[in-house]
Protein backbone atom coordinates (compact mmCIF):
# COMPACT_ATOMS: atom_id res chain seq x y z
CA UNK A 1 0.00 0.00 0.00
CA UNK A 2 1.22 3.44 -0.93
CA UNK A 3 -0.07 6.44 0.93
CA UNK A 4 0.63 10.12 0.19
CA UNK A 5 -0.11 12.36 3.19
CA UNK A 6 0.01 16.13 2.54
CA UNK A 7 2.94 15.65 0.21
CA UNK A 8 4.50 18.80 -1.29
CA UNK A 9 7.50 19.09 -3.54
CA UNK A 10 9.16 22.36 -4.44
CA UNK A 11 12.08 22.18 -6.90
CA UNK A 12 15.20 24.25 -6.16
CA UNK A 13 14.20 26.69 -8.91
CA UNK A 14 10.93 27.38 -7.10
CA UNK A 15 8.59 25.32 -9.27
CA UNK A 16 5.97 23.52 -7.25
CA UNK A 17 6.08 19.92 -8.49
CA UNK A 18 3.51 18.49 -6.09
CA UNK A 19 0.88 20.38 -4.08
CA UNK A 20 -0.89 18.87 -1.05
CA UNK A 21 -1.16 15.36 -2.40
CA UNK A 22 -3.36 12.98 -0.40
CA UNK A 23 -3.75 9.70 -2.22
CA UNK A 24 -3.96 6.08 -1.14
CA UNK A 25 -3.06 3.32 -3.63
CA UNK A 26 -4.32 -0.12 -2.60
CA UNK A 27 -2.47 -3.35 -3.30
CA UNK A 28 -3.16 -4.90 -6.69
CA UNK A 29 -4.67 -1.78 -8.26
CA UNK A 30 -3.93 -0.68 -11.81
CA UNK A 31 -3.87 3.08 -11.59
CA UNK A 32 -3.41 5.40 -14.54
CA UNK A 33 -2.33 8.96 -13.85
CA UNK A 34 -3.41 11.41 -16.54
CA UNK A 35 -2.66 15.06 -17.09
CA UNK A 36 -0.93 17.39 -19.48
CA UNK A 37 2.84 17.34 -19.64
CA UNK A 38 4.21 19.35 -16.76
CA UNK A 39 1.19 18.55 -14.60
CA UNK A 40 3.34 16.65 -12.09
CA UNK A 41 2.60 13.05 -13.17
CA UNK A 42 6.26 12.20 -13.46
CA UNK A 43 7.14 13.88 -10.16
CA UNK A 44 4.30 11.96 -8.50
CA UNK A 45 5.54 8.60 -9.72
CA UNK A 46 9.22 9.32 -9.09
CA UNK A 47 8.49 10.31 -5.50
CA UNK A 48 7.47 6.74 -4.78
CA UNK A 49 10.94 5.33 -5.51
CA UNK A 50 12.62 8.56 -4.41
CA UNK A 51 14.21 9.46 -7.74
CA UNK A 52 12.88 12.83 -6.57
CA UNK A 53 12.38 13.71 -2.92
CA UNK A 54 9.27 15.55 -1.72
CA UNK A 55 10.03 18.52 0.48
CA UNK A 56 7.23 18.03 3.04
CA UNK A 57 4.52 15.63 4.14
CA UNK A 58 4.92 11.90 4.48
CA UNK A 59 4.86 9.12 1.94
CA UNK A 60 4.16 5.65 3.28
CA UNK A 61 5.10 2.54 1.33
CA UNK A 62 4.02 -0.59 3.23
CA UNK A 63 3.50 1.60 6.30
CA UNK A 64 7.03 2.95 6.34
CA UNK A 65 7.75 6.62 5.72
CA UNK A 66 10.16 6.47 2.83
CA UNK A 67 11.01 10.16 2.85
CA UNK A 68 13.55 9.53 5.62
CA UNK A 69 15.23 6.65 3.79
CA UNK A 70 18.89 6.90 2.87
CA UNK A 71 21.58 4.55 1.57
CA UNK A 72 20.73 0.93 2.19
CA UNK A 73 17.06 1.49 3.07
CA UNK A 74 16.63 3.50 -0.10
CA UNK A 75 18.12 0.76 -2.26
CA UNK A 76 15.88 -1.78 -0.54
CA UNK A 77 12.84 0.37 -1.31
CA UNK A 78 13.94 0.61 -4.93
CA UNK A 79 14.30 -3.16 -5.31
CA UNK A 80 10.65 -3.31 -4.27
CA UNK A 81 9.51 -0.81 -6.90
CA UNK A 82 10.28 -1.61 -10.52
CA UNK A 83 10.31 1.24 -13.03
CA UNK A 84 9.61 1.47 -16.74
CA UNK A 85 10.75 4.53 -18.69
CA UNK A 86 9.61 6.35 -21.80
CA UNK A 87 13.00 5.81 -23.47
CA UNK A 88 13.37 2.19 -22.24
CA UNK A 89 16.73 3.13 -20.62
CA UNK A 90 18.51 -0.04 -21.71
CA UNK A 91 22.29 -0.25 -22.02
CA UNK A 92 22.33 -0.26 -25.82
CA UNK A 93 25.67 -1.98 -26.25
CA UNK A 94 24.89 -4.84 -23.86
CA UNK A 95 22.87 -7.87 -24.88
CA UNK A 96 19.26 -8.46 -23.89
CA UNK A 97 20.02 -11.05 -21.20
CA UNK A 98 22.54 -8.79 -19.49
CA UNK A 99 20.07 -5.93 -19.55
CA UNK A 100 17.36 -8.09 -18.01
CA UNK A 101 19.71 -9.45 -15.35
CA UNK A 102 20.45 -5.86 -14.37
CA UNK A 103 17.03 -6.03 -12.71
CA UNK A 104 18.61 -8.33 -10.11
CA UNK A 105 21.39 -5.88 -9.21
CA UNK A 106 19.60 -4.72 -6.07
CA UNK A 107 19.34 -8.34 -4.90
CA UNK A 108 22.91 -9.25 -5.81
CA UNK A 109 26.16 -8.51 -4.02
CA UNK A 110 28.55 -6.05 -5.65
CA UNK A 111 31.35 -8.58 -6.19
CA UNK A 112 29.01 -11.20 -7.61
CA UNK A 113 27.53 -8.72 -10.06
CA UNK A 114 30.89 -7.36 -11.18
CA UNK A 115 32.11 -10.82 -12.14
CA UNK A 116 28.76 -11.71 -13.74
CA UNK A 117 28.28 -14.52 -11.20
CA UNK A 118 24.51 -14.49 -11.08
CA UNK A 119 22.75 -17.33 -9.29
CA UNK A 120 21.25 -19.98 -11.57
CA UNK A 121 17.82 -19.04 -10.19
CA UNK A 122 18.36 -15.46 -11.31
CA UNK A 123 19.37 -16.43 -14.84
CA UNK A 124 16.41 -18.75 -15.06
CA UNK A 125 14.12 -16.02 -13.76
CA UNK A 126 15.45 -13.60 -16.37
CA UNK A 127 14.79 -16.14 -19.11
CA UNK A 128 11.27 -16.81 -17.84
CA UNK A 129 10.58 -13.09 -17.80
CA UNK A 130 11.75 -12.74 -21.38
CA UNK A 131 9.45 -15.62 -22.35
CA UNK A 132 6.49 -13.93 -20.70
CA UNK A 133 6.86 -10.88 -22.94
CA UNK A 134 7.70 -13.13 -25.92
CA UNK A 135 11.12 -11.74 -26.66
CA UNK A 136 13.17 -14.78 -25.58
CA UNK A 137 14.46 -15.47 -29.09
CA UNK A 138 16.37 -12.16 -28.98
CA UNK A 139 18.20 -13.14 -25.80
CA UNK A 140 21.71 -12.66 -27.17
CA UNK A 141 20.99 -9.71 -29.44
CA UNK A 142 22.39 -6.34 -28.52
CA UNK A 143 19.70 -3.98 -27.21
CA UNK A 144 20.29 -1.46 -29.99
CA UNK A 145 19.39 -4.10 -32.59
CA UNK A 146 15.78 -4.17 -31.35
CA UNK A 147 12.83 -1.99 -32.35
CA UNK A 148 11.30 0.43 -29.85
CA UNK A 149 8.47 -1.91 -28.93
CA UNK A 150 10.87 -4.81 -28.45
CA UNK A 151 13.14 -2.67 -26.27
CA UNK A 152 10.20 -1.69 -24.09
CA UNK A 153 9.30 -5.37 -23.72
CA UNK A 154 12.88 -6.07 -22.63
CA UNK A 155 12.57 -3.32 -20.06
CA UNK A 156 9.33 -4.94 -18.83
CA UNK A 157 11.23 -8.22 -18.54
CA UNK A 158 13.90 -6.40 -16.57
CA UNK A 159 11.27 -5.16 -14.13
CA UNK A 160 9.73 -8.66 -13.88
CA UNK A 161 13.14 -10.10 -13.07
CA UNK A 162 13.39 -7.60 -10.26
CA UNK A 163 10.26 -9.26 -8.73
CA UNK A 164 8.91 -5.97 -7.44
CA UNK A 165 5.83 -5.34 -5.39
CA UNK A 166 5.04 -2.18 -7.33
CA UNK A 167 5.57 -1.22 -10.94
CA UNK A 168 5.94 2.45 -11.84
CA UNK A 169 5.67 3.22 -15.55
CA UNK A 170 6.54 6.74 -16.66
CA UNK A 171 4.95 7.39 -20.07
CA UNK A 172 5.82 3.86 -21.24
CA UNK A 173 4.17 4.23 -24.65
CA UNK A 174 4.94 7.86 -25.53
CA UNK A 175 7.69 6.82 -27.96
CA UNK A 176 5.76 3.96 -29.58
CA UNK A 177 3.24 3.65 -32.42
CA UNK A 178 -0.42 2.76 -31.66
CA UNK A 179 -0.31 -1.07 -32.17
CA UNK A 180 2.90 -1.48 -30.12
CA UNK A 181 1.51 0.87 -27.47
CA UNK A 182 -1.47 -1.44 -26.97
CA UNK A 183 0.80 -4.48 -26.89
CA UNK A 184 2.93 -2.94 -24.13
CA UNK A 185 -0.15 -1.85 -22.15
CA UNK A 186 -1.61 -5.34 -22.49
CA UNK A 187 1.53 -6.87 -21.03
CA UNK A 188 1.50 -4.44 -18.11
CA UNK A 189 -2.16 -5.17 -17.48
CA UNK A 190 -1.61 -8.92 -17.68
CA UNK A 191 1.30 -8.80 -15.24
CA UNK A 192 -0.80 -6.71 -12.88
CA UNK A 193 -3.57 -9.29 -12.86
CA UNK A 194 -1.45 -12.46 -12.84
CA UNK A 195 1.25 -11.43 -10.34
CA UNK A 196 -0.90 -9.05 -8.29
CA UNK A 197 1.69 -6.32 -8.74
CA UNK A 198 0.33 -2.88 -7.97
CA UNK A 199 0.90 -0.81 -11.11
CA UNK A 200 0.98 2.95 -11.62
CA UNK A 201 1.16 4.21 -15.18
CA UNK A 202 1.55 7.78 -16.44
CA UNK A 203 -0.29 8.37 -19.69
CA UNK A 204 -1.55 11.34 -21.55
CA UNK A 205 -3.75 9.39 -23.96
CA UNK A 206 -7.35 9.44 -22.75
CA UNK A 207 -8.57 6.41 -24.66
CA UNK A 208 -5.74 4.23 -23.38
CA UNK A 209 -6.31 5.34 -19.80
CA UNK A 210 -10.01 4.42 -20.11
CA UNK A 211 -9.25 1.06 -21.67
CA UNK A 212 -6.64 -0.27 -19.23
CA UNK A 213 -7.11 1.48 -15.87
CA UNK A 214 -9.05 0.31 -12.81
CA UNK A 215 -8.74 3.75 -11.35
CA UNK A 216 -7.80 7.12 -12.77
CA UNK A 217 -5.98 9.96 -11.02
CA UNK A 218 -6.08 13.28 -12.83
CA UNK A 219 -3.40 15.86 -12.17
CA UNK A 220 -3.12 19.54 -13.05
CA UNK A 221 -0.39 21.96 -11.95
CA UNK A 222 0.91 19.59 -9.28
CA UNK A 223 -2.47 18.92 -7.73
CA UNK A 224 -4.73 15.89 -7.82
CA UNK A 225 -7.92 17.19 -9.44
CA UNK A 226 -9.67 13.86 -9.96
CA UNK A 227 -9.45 10.46 -8.30
CA UNK A 228 -11.94 7.71 -8.94
CA UNK A 229 -12.77 4.42 -10.65
CA UNK A 230 -12.95 4.34 -14.43
CA UNK A 231 -16.72 3.88 -14.30
CA UNK A 232 -17.12 7.41 -12.95
CA UNK A 233 -15.03 8.99 -15.69
CA UNK A 234 -16.65 10.81 -18.57
CA UNK A 235 -15.35 13.05 -21.31
CA UNK A 236 -16.28 15.96 -19.09
CA UNK A 237 -13.91 14.67 -16.38
CA UNK A 238 -11.01 14.84 -18.84
CA UNK A 239 -11.97 18.33 -19.94
CA UNK A 240 -11.78 19.33 -16.29
CA UNK A 241 -8.38 17.65 -15.81
CA UNK A 242 -6.92 19.14 -18.96
CA UNK A 243 -8.60 22.49 -18.48
CA UNK A 244 -9.63 22.56 -22.14
CA UNK A 245 -11.64 20.68 -24.75
CA UNK A 246 -10.44 17.20 -25.77
CA UNK A 247 -8.49 17.13 -29.01
CA UNK A 248 -7.59 14.51 -31.56
CA UNK A 249 -4.00 14.20 -30.29
CA UNK A 250 -5.15 13.33 -26.78
CA UNK A 251 -6.18 9.96 -28.21
CA UNK A 252 -3.83 7.17 -29.18
CA UNK A 253 -6.36 5.24 -31.28
CA UNK A 254 -5.68 1.88 -32.91
CA UNK A 255 -7.32 -0.18 -30.15
CA UNK A 256 -8.92 -2.59 -32.61
CA UNK A 257 -5.55 -3.41 -34.19
CA UNK A 258 -4.04 -4.74 -30.99
Amino acid sequence: MIEFKDVNLVYPNGTQGLKNINVKINDGEFVVIVGLSGAGKSTFIRSINRLVTPTSGSLLVDNEDILKFRGKDLRKLRTKTGMIFQNYNLVKRSNVLKNVLAGRLGHTGTLRSIFNLYKKEDVSLAYESLKRVHIDEKIYNRADELSGGQQQRVSIARVLTQQPKYILADEPVASLDPPTSHQVMNYLRKINKEDKITTLVNLHFIDMAMEYADRIIGMRAGEVVFDGPVSEVTEKTFEEIYGRAIREDDLRGGAEQA
Binding site: L97, K120, E121, V123, S124, A126, Y127, E128, L130, D136, I139, Y140
Partner: peptide, 12 residues
Protein backbone atom coordinates in the same frame (compact mmCIF):
# COMPACT_ATOMS: atom_id res chain seq x y z
CA UNK B 1 17.36 -27.09 -9.41
CA UNK B 2 15.78 -29.51 -11.84
CA UNK B 3 12.79 -27.32 -12.54
CA UNK B 4 14.90 -24.31 -13.54
CA UNK B 5 14.74 -23.44 -17.22
CA UNK B 6 18.03 -21.93 -18.22
CA UNK B 7 18.35 -20.02 -21.47
CA UNK B 8 20.01 -21.77 -24.42
CA UNK B 9 23.71 -21.15 -24.79
CA UNK B 10 24.56 -18.55 -27.44
CA UNK B 11 25.01 -20.21 -30.86
CA UNK B 12 28.38 -18.82 -31.89
Amino acid sequence: MANLTLPPKPKN
